[in-house]
Amino acid sequence: MKAPKNMEDEARKELEKAFVEEAVPHMDALYATALRLTKNKGNAEDLVQEAMLKAFRYFGKYQRGTNCKAWLFKIMTNTFINNYRKAKKRKEVSIDEDIKPLAERAVALERDPMQEHFGDQDTMFFKLFGDEVKQALEEVPFDFRIVVLLADLQGFAYKEIADIIDVPIGTVMSRLYRGRRILQSKLTEYAKEQGYLSDRVETDLEEKKPTSLDDYRNRRMNG
């Protein structure tokens, strides 16, 4: 192995080495999430590739030893959103409805039966429908889907998710709560269609929102 020609080579190699050690191990996690964002393998590969190359370009600015995974997910999420915006402008690709702003969907969402819990049936759904879970998830609007993926597939904390998608923690909580219920209600529909559940499943419509952490903490403080 020859010595690097000059300092520049040395620095570049250092950067490559750090990137391989810190960023590259998260590639599988990025890919698993990208699959559920883009809904197909080819696009998922393109997305991961674009995000990783972008991450390498900006890797000099990344502070070593901090939360590399969250940093990579932020890059990938932004890349995904930007690409879809571009696609929408060009009108070349069929537009994914779920990228519409939240406000436009709010009315329609209210009509969805919000279901609290599956009781003992919850794990059954996953056993019965591997692919259906993926399909149901892909039907969950993007803003909710990304939060569910970041929390439940990748195990990010609320604070990290808030940083990744650039929204307040309260928004993360309500989207996560709602995203999970949308997914659960979709799976309940599948189960009914397939006859695994009777049509008269109890739906608990009372709790549509999680209590915000701040509200909860204020209440504790005041009484």
Binding site: V20, V24, M27, D28, L30, Y31, A32, L35, R36, K41, E45, V48, Q49, M52, L53, H117, F118, G119, D120, D122, T123, F125, F126, K127, G130, V133, K134, L137, V148, L149, D152, L153, G155, R180, Q184
Partner: peptide
């Protein structure tokens, strides 16, 4: 039930690894 849900969700979706040629292409 919620804990089960979370765990099952993860089990259902994890294990998708980046294809070897994607890895090679990026590197």
């Amino acid at each position: 039930s919620q804990i089960n849900w979370k765990r099952s969700f993860k089990q259902c979706l994890e294990g998708e690894t980046a294809p070897v040629d994607l890895r090679a292409s990026i590197l």
